Computed example of a mutant assay.
Amino acid sequence: MNTVAVVARAASFSPLRCYVLEARLELLRLLRTPSFVLPTLLFPPLFYVLFAVVLAGSRGGSDTGRYLLATYGVFGVMGAALFGFGVTVASERERGLLTLKRALPMPPGAYLMAKMLMAMAFATIISLTLALLAGTLAGVWLRPAQWALLLVINVLGVLPFCAIGLYIGSRVSGSAAPAVVNILYLPMAFLSGLWLPLSVLPPVLAKLAVAWPAYHLGQVALKVVDRDGGGSLAIHLLVLGAVTIGFFALALARARLARSV
């Protein structure tokens, strides 16, 4: 009877259920981690209220609100992806959790897919919160298609930063990962024009902004609200795609090398 039960259970095994369960547990785990969830979900809307509503006031009008709606959305999804991958992967790798997961009867991609879906879920929450604040407090008016497109850009925009975070997590220790992510995250946000327009930065720094993936994602989002610098959309998307593929490939190569040693 026990053998029959085991065979029946094996026959009903569903890889899709493994993906769903892993994603659900990853999301619940991070929602129960205040050190991750509070800054990730609160900093972008707090900064938006401070700079787009309180400090801008009547001087900035809806133009400032539109600009910061796009750029702080990018700033928020960057944090969710970089910290969600960079810090957690490094910590789990150091504790041996990745070795354990490789020994479990689960699809190889379930672990990465769960983390990507987690980052997309947080990106959705951040985007909707900023949209609510922009529409109610900052007086921003956009067409329904623009609101929807901003949401799509933010949700898909986590992918390059998930890839960068995965590479960081595969390279550094769990204790060093938060510092490494912060050293990358905050300067990249500032130098990409997410906090201030590039026109107010020194010309040398403004010219170097194109080296940052956050700049390209920011320009894609700013195109939706008609506040971008006029660059080619195809170039921005090409850079983001190259960063995503390149860093995922580097991280996977690093993981294979570590297993072979």
Rank of each mutant, 00 (worst) to 15 (best):
L198T: 08
A177L: 03
L196T: 12
V181K: 07
L201F: 13
L166S: 05
F190C: 00
Y167W: 13
N182Q: 13
L184N: 03
L198M: 11
I168R: 03
I183Y: 14
L184I: 15
L186D: 02
S192E: 05
V172L: 07
L194T: 10
S192Y: 07
V172T: 11
Y167S: 06
L184R: 08
P197C: 04
S199L: 01
Y167E: 08
Y185Q: 11
P187C: 03
L186I: 15
G193L: 04
M188N: 09
A176S: 14
A179P: 02
P178N: 06
N182Y: 07
L198E: 10
L186Y: 14
I168V: 15
S192T: 01
A177F: 00
P202R: 13
P202F: 11
L184T: 09
S175G: 13
A177I: 00
L166W: 03
V180A: 12
L184G: 01
S170A: 15
A177M: 02
L196Y: 14
Y185T: 00
F190H: 01
S173G: 15
P187E: 04
Y185P: 05
L184A: 11
V172D: 00
V200W: 11
P178D: 00
L186E: 02
Y185M: 00
P178S: 03
V172F: 13
S192V: 03
G169V: 07
A176M: 15
A177D: 02
P197H: 03
S173L: 07
P197W: 09
V181M: 05
L166H: 11
L198S: 07
P187A: 05
V200I: 15
M188H: 04
P197E: 08
L194V: 08
S199N: 05
V200F: 11
S192L: 03
S175N: 14
A189H: 02
G174C: 09
R171V: 15
L184Q: 01
S170Q: 15
G174A: 06
I168F: 11
S170Y: 05
L191W: 10
V180L: 12
S170L: 10
L184P: 06
G169Q: 08
A189Y: 06
L196G: 01
L186N: 05
F190G: 02
L166A: 04
S192I: 02
L198K: 09
L194F: 09
P197T: 08
P187F: 09
N182V: 04
Y167I: 02
L184S: 01
L194R: 03
A176Q: 12
